[in-house]
Design a protein around this nucleic acid. Structure first.
Lengths: 198, 198
DNA sequence: AATATCCTAGGATGATCGTCCTATTTTAAT
DNA sequence: ATTAAAATAGGACGATCATCCTAGGATATT
């Protein structure tokens, strides 16, 4: 494991601050203070705020990719991997309750700012969408794979938003249970439909 | 219908701008330009930006209440009223695709800003939550009324966020259809369970 | 040890923002 | 018609922001 560079520290601090305070509401000074670095030093590593944003998005994509890859290395099967995705809401429930979903809130904010990097933020969604779709395909649900993927993304998103608005952690548990049930019944339905046609 | 005052024009312009650009990203000048009013005149009507925000939230609550009341005046029954709620996603799909959900995006932004009015923004959610719960109770689903209400809120929220992120209007149609089905089957399930116990 | 490159610090700049103040015009009441 | 109040205009202020610049210190290569 390489030693972290100043640049790494900046990006990680910005990542957290953008998540907790939002991109626009986070200033250079905020990040500099967090990293214990002078504002001037900043400019050496990042010429503009947009460059930091790009770096943060790149970092987030890399982190999420690494997480998905790790699940595969752990030997989890497709169904279990989808369950792991749903379980993210539980694992991160404290942060989600406080700050919402890191994907959705950034995407929404950049959309309102009409920011050039909004397309990059959407790539984070696309990463999960493509990955979820692939898992459903591996389960033999090719026909509805993308629909299922988008459905799960949307529900996770909604749960995060409302859990944050109502400051309600129990709601996350409720909805996660329902999503597990939905997953089981979707697979059963598809399996019985398939057996009918065979 | 009373003539609109300058104050009304300001609040309506702010309402739209906060929705499209976000609260923080909208400046006094932005609103003043939209209303064709000098920045100075502004201060006469609203001493602080937070006052405008409060007025906007109050307006939104009033508008939504009026909408719900109208449905009742139209003679719609509880089941149909819930369908009308789901249908909002279709009716406002163009705006939702572009700017997301007006409730969720404001609530999320104020949460990140740690803004004092965040609790008021949540009242908008609570308005729908309470109303939906009441409709489910009228349908005889007392036990799960609040769970159902929150479930519908969350799904609408998620649909809006992803439709905006992926700029995908068709996804809204897909999910709305699924929500209609979910509504029917939830009612059927509850009815059959009730008949078992009787 | 010399030197070039990397890294850091902190102030300067111009723009924008929310807020405030004061002067002028319009409207309403007597 | 006179006068008090409401409404409007536009500039001023202090703070904050992203960005830029310059000077000095650290590090590495030779």
């Amino acid at each position: 494991m390489k030693n972290k560079t100043t640049r790494d520290h900046i990006v990680e601090a910005a990542d957290q601050l953008f998540y907790r305070q939002g991109f626009e509401h986070t200033s250079f000074s905020d990040i500099a203070e967090t990293v214990h670095i002078s504002r001037g030093n900043f400019y050496y590593h990042f010429k503009t705020k947009d460059e930091i944003l790009d770096a943060v998005i790149t970092l987030r994509i890399a982190n999420k990719k690494a997480m998905l890859d790790q699940w595969k290395l752990d030997g989890r099967q497709p169904l279990d991997r989808i369950r792991s995705f749903i379980h993210i809401l539980i694992a991160n429930r404290t942060d989600i309750k406080r700050y919402g979903c890191p994907l959705g809130t950034l995407s929404t904010e950049l959309s309102k700012l009409n920011h050039a990097s909004q397309a990059d933020a959407t790539k984070l969604f696309t990463l999960f969408r493509t990955w979820l779709r692939q898992q459903f395909i591996l389960l033999g649900l090719e026909k509805d794979a993308d629909t299922f993927a988008m459905h799960l993304l949307a529900r996770s998103q909604g749960v995060a938003t409302l859990a944050s608005a109502f400051d309600d952690e129990e709601f996350i548990n409720q909805e996660v249970d329902q999503m597990y049930h939905w997953l089981n019944s979707s697979i059963e339905t598809a399996a019985s439909e398939s057996s009918i046609h065979n």
